[in-house]
Design a protein around this nucleic acid. Structure first.
Lengths: 195, 195
DNA sequence: TATTATAATGAACCATGGTTCAAGTTGTCA
DNA sequence: TGACAACTTGAACCATGGTTCATTATAATA
């Protein structure tokens, strides 16, 4: 149902199969980003120029496909955020992180949906956030907290949630910028001089 | 399809009909609040102790029923918020408003969903927000802005959105409190001394 | 009480959209 | 160049859940 690299298996995956798998992933990324969680398998198949059955051959279910996409997204995001860890200014790291997550969310409705989803449902995908994205955010955040630049009570998991209401791609860029500034100001250690 | 008060009609609505209508509304409120937008008509019917057909007799469609509920919710919220307009301290008015909307959202998943929904889809319900809730928030907000207590660039429509990521009813109350404080701090006129 | 407009019922209907699988293709290896 | 496992195909299948409507029941009126 799922053929990763060389398992203990015999034959290597056929090259056409690998191409198709890639086409499906690409199409799924596009459609999930545009239509959100309820993008349709048929649409993905059409866009990938592949039959529905092929998708099921490679991924087994719609949820599994979504999970693959989303997990990959979280992984890439985590990598990027980790690279911000030693931004010269700790605060800048936090700001960059926020802006980056915001930008990702605006371009990907499915991602946004998963971030918002109750941990109960959509468990497989939500796990990717808990175990990949959040751990990447944590050091960036804590560094800024240690420097007294961010409220001490904030937790890494708060950041994605705070961005949940970010105006979508239809809205004015200035609306998004204002939203971000409000959140950033809220996070920054303010007049109440916590430290 | 919808029998409001006395139209130009002849007979008054039968009392059992009125009771059933009320039962349906009550059940729908409960189920939409608990299950969100995709609460099932059959469940609502069961909870109201009424046949599905009766719901359709009174409301015509699931969307219409949802719209009725949501519009009513927005109306009540608007009324409550308006009563805060002349809170002695302008800032307190804003804070109360935020806390009130937050509390409503946590208790009602459908409400939260509508607030988050792209204005495109779910148009009928979203209109209720635009035309009832937002206008009620505006004076409270602008009063605090005039007093220099809230960022000048914030708009009434921002407030519900900022609360979109608020941790749901499953989360610790302290998580919600922290979230609120961050938003409040972000709105408050801060060190950058706008005025 | 007889009449009737209005309301209630719920099994059947239907659209949607994910999933299956028997039949046919094709890359790869010997 | 076979031979075969791996892969692809897409029509058919099925579950879900909103909606219809012919039938039956009942509140209101005369």
């Amino acid at each position: 149902m799922d053929n990763n690299e060389r398992g203990g298996a015999r034959r290597a995956a056929r090259v056409d199969a690998r191409q198709n798998r890639a086409r499906i992933l690409a199409a799924a990324r596009v459609r999930f980003a545009a239509d959100g969680i309820d993008a349709q398998i048929d649409d993905i198949a059409r866009e990938a120029e592949v039959a529905v059955g092929t998708i099921y051959h490679h991924f087994g279910s719609k949820d599994a496909l979504l999970e693959a996409i989303v997990h990959d997204r979280f992984q890439r995001m985590a990598d990027h955020i980790s690279s911000l860890r030693d931004e010269m200014d700790a605060w800048a790291g936090v700001e960059q992180t926020l802006r980056y997550i915001a930008e990702r969310q605006v371009h990907d409705r499915a991602l946004k949906a998963v971030i918002l989803s109750q941990p109960a449902l959509r468990e497989a995908s939500a796990a990717g956030m808990r175990e990949v994205l959040i751990p990447a955010i944590r050091p960036v955040l804590e560094r800024a907290q240690a420097a007294g630049q961010v409220r001490a009570d904030v937790v890494a998991g708060d950041l994605p949630l705070l961005l949940a209401g970010l105006p979508g791609s239809a809205a004015e860029p200035t609306d998004r910028e204002r939203y971000l500034e409000i959140i950033l100001a809220g996070l920054r250690t303010g007049g109440d001089a916590a430290y």
